[in-house]
Amino acid sequence: MSRPSISELERKYLLDAFDSGWISSLGDYVVRAEDKLKTIGGVTHAAVVSNGTTALHLALLALDIGPGDEVIIPSSTYVATLNAVLYVGALPVIVDVDPVTWCISPDAVHEALTTKTRAVIAVDLYGHPADYGSLREICGPAGVVLVADAAESIGGSLQGVPVGALADVSTFSFFGNKVVTSGEGGAVVTQDAEVDRRIRKLRNQGNHEDRRYFHDILGYNYRMTNLAAAILCAQLERLPELLSSRQGVVEQYDRLFELNPTLVPQGRASGAAASPWMYSLELKGELAGRRDDIMSQMRAEGVETRPVFNTVESMPYLKSFRSSPTPVAGTLAKSGVSLPTFPGMTPSEVEHVVTSLFRACGLTK
């Protein structure tokens, strides 16, 4: 599905961090990575952390969201979005997604609001920014915080505003298959100085700002190491190159699937520049019911694929939640498939994936 692009620059920075002796969570590369993220995200504050899930957890903690609060999330998302809400003891309120972009539906959010709603987490599914303009119009008057789970969308934008500056607080993931990686890693970015201060304190065991080894709040060890930050710095410097390479893959897929009514790619909203993370499409008609068999046949030919995320309300450990109908997310969970997408993927590799898919579907190109 994905192959990271690791160059000599990553090796150079990693060995420099190693040789410096600063291999844990203090070191120049941590600061450099945060500075680079501020520029890329168009924000004044950025804090790197151990992974994308801890970034979401810290964001909700810093916003003082907890038991008795409701947090609206989309049905179509990776389970980390749900888990972060459960970690803080809040009640997840699960709503449907837009049938075109597959991102959280603003109309569904509006209908789900109650006096207990404290936050909305919008997920930029597969790299496409959610409709933050409409979400802000809903959240602002209601006094609800808008959080962006931008794990998959670094480098994207909406109406010219970069991902990172579209919500009150945004989180990134730098897992090995993401647009930029540090192996494991994440970040929280914001314009709010107080939220950033709390993030930094919470990620460092709740350590008091002035009194060493005195912890006046419950904190967590969610820090990023200088070694991981060194790899991240190189990846962030190479972001334009990585985006361009991935975009070439996406454009080739688009041409090969053009006007095919039974293989419909995730749509794109006007004014949205999606980050080209993972090319995903919905199987239509009789192909929808054959999705898993089609994926199995492709796997037998050496082509790995991924199903679109299961609905979060289907997770068996989820005991307490509120949900409205989620027909779009439910359909995508059964009929959606993601195809290999990574920088350096050759035109012949893309062609091979598409040929395998058409063959498994019984279609001719």
Rank of each mutant, 00 (worst) to 15 (best):
E286H: 09
L135F: 08
N204M: 01
F174S: 10
K319G: 10
V188K: 06
R246C: 06
V93E: 00
C139H: 12
I121F: 10
A272N: 01
G68N: 01
F358D: 03
Y13H: 04
E282G: 05
F174L: 09
V48C: 10
R118C: 14
V180S: 03
E241Q: 14
T53A: 07
L332F: 05
V144T: 10
A142M: 07
L236R: 07
S348K: 05
L146V: 12
E137R: 07
E304H: 13
L259H: 14
L232W: 04
S275Y: 04
Y29S: 11
G143M: 15
R11L: 10
L125F: 06
T114D: 09
A151K: 15
S25P: 01
G66L: 15
G206N: 05
A47S: 14
E237P: 09
T225F: 02
P92E: 04
E241M: 12
P343E: 10
F18S: 12
L60D: 08
A119V: 14
R197Y: 06
Y13D: 00
L60A: 03
G155D: 06
L91I: 08
A193N: 14
S75D: 11
H215F: 04
E209T: 00
T77C: 12
L239W: 02
P325L: 01
I217H: 01
L58F: 06
N83Y: 13
Q191T: 14
V79T: 11
